[in-house]
Amino acid sequence: MMMEFTTWDILRNLLLAARWTVLLSLVSFVGGSLVGLAILFMRIGKNVWLKRFAQGYIELFQGTPLLMQLFLAFFGLGLVGVDVPAWLAAALALTLWTAAFLAEIWRGCVEAIVRGQWEASSSLAMGYVQQMRYVILPQALKIAVPPTVGFSVQVVKGTALTSIIGFVELSKAGTMVTNATFQPFIVYGFVALIYFALCWPLSKSSQILERKLNVAHRNH
């Protein structure tokens, strides 16, 4: 017996799956921010070994495809006897991947703060942690907002890869719905539109924030 699918059936199923895309994006972004912050402080800190570790971490995750990282998290951990469900492998790999990029973006922001700010706060007898907390980070944060929001778009799109290890989010749902309906153009058209609806507001707000914070010509 042949099932008939209405357009609404297709869209409804895709929207239901899109919730997982949103959730995975949020988890990866929040988790990635926390791990990224830790990597950032290792990277810009004074301890040589932590610095090297952070540098190696960033290079490793930036220098390999996200897909490989997903495979390694999913199959690799399985090989050593840890049974990892697809959602966990997806969240783990995306979190670590996001952390590497955010740490590097933020490092640039911290290093963009002119040396005079360090010197002035040093001459006022502030210690490293105080300088960071009260002088450097508040300024770096302002610069960091637009690129960070911009990068969140990459995270959302990155979640599409997790369909390959079997996590049912928007892209995977698209494939499944296509297999049932044999209407790939309509289905993937909707998939693309939904991704766009998620990403475009992020890109746009990144642009608006950039103008609003007017960072380009500040402090100089």
Binding site: E119, A120, R218
Partner: peptide, 11 residues
């Protein structure tokens, strides 16, 4: 210490 470039905290 006082610097040539003032170095006030702009924020």
């Amino acid at each position: 210490m006082i610097f040539q470039s003032f170095n006030l905290f702009p924020h």
